[in-house]
Amino acid sequence: MGEPMGSELVVGEWSWAPVEEVVAWARFWASASWPMTEDVAIDLGVAHLGWSVDEKGAAVGPWPLNRPGVTLSRDYGDKDCHGFSFKVTDVVGRPEELLDADGQRLWEAFLRDRFTLLVRALTPELRESKRLREKLEDSSLVTARWDLPDGGIRWDVTQSAGSVTCWVSSPESAQVERNLGN
């Protein structure tokens, strides 16, 4: 069974991560043993998810995106990985300056389709998401958020004007965010 099709407007030159692979990543990280160090997270990504490591030791996702890096986070001096983020679409910085009106319309449709397909595919795996809308300077962000039960990870999919990004928060970081009302 192939990936579900988006709108007919998605005909641009942009790349995206296969939806079923992103869903597999969600399943993998939801069942992973936390806490873990950044090195363990990278090793798991390499062993199970097709990640590689570049010459600087940074994690790189397997998809042919223009920004394939996986950004891991931890507190200064801390060993434990608090989470990470990765793009699931190519990135266009300042599309309003780089694309003509038709290109902007196609880009927006592309992002909306990728976001919608991913949220639909993740819902049976992670249950219903909470939707958040935020304004950041001149653009808006739309986020689908899943807080996994029993103190599990938090999984966010965010659509901005420039890309669709996934954010994974460790159970400990997710709990801190929930305690802060986020």
Rank of each mutant, 00 (worst) to 15 (best):
M1K: 12
M1G: 15
M1I: 12
M1Q: 11
G2R: 14
G6L: 11
E8L: 12
L9N: 13
V11S: 14
V11P: 01
G12S: 11
G12W: 03
E20M: 08
E21V: 01
E21N: 12
V22C: 10
F28T: 06
S33E: 11
W34Q: 06
P35W: 06
T37W: 02
V40A: 08
I42H: 00
L44P: 00
A47W: 00
A47L: 04
A47Q: 07
H48G: 08
H48A: 13
L49V: 00
G50A: 05
W51K: 00
V53D: 02
K56C: 08
G57T: 04
A58R: 11
A59P: 02
A59C: 02
W63T: 03
N66K: 02
N66I: 01
R67V: 08
L72K: 03
R74F: 04
R74P: 00
R74D: 03
G77E: 03
D80Q: 10
D80M: 09
D80E: 12
C81Q: 04
C81H: 06
C81T: 02
H82K: 12
G83T: 04
F84Q: 08
S85G: 08
F86L: 15
K87Y: 07
T89R: 07
G93H: 12
R94I: 01
P95N: 04
D100T: 12
D100E: 09
D102N: 12
G103C: 06
G103E: 01
L106E: 13
L106N: 11
F110W: 12
L111I: 07
L111R: 07
D113C: 03
R114C: 11
R114K: 13
F115A: 08
L118I: 07
V119F: 06
R120I: 10
T123M: 06
E125I: 14
L126E: 09
R127M: 11
R127E: 15
E128H: 13
K130D: 13
R131T: 15
L132M: 12
K135S: 15
L136A: 15
E137F: 14
V142K: 09
D147M: 08
L148F: 07
P149K: 04
G152T: 04
G152L: 03
I153A: 03
W155A: 03
V157K: 01
T158D: 06
Q159I: 07
S160D: 09
S160V: 08
A161P: 00
G162D: 14
S163P: 01
C166H: 06
W167F: 10
V168N: 04
V168W: 00
S169G: 03
S169F: 12
S169I: 00
E172Y: 07
S173E: 13
S173G: 05
Q175G: 14
V176F: 10
R178H: 11
G181R: 05
N182D: 14
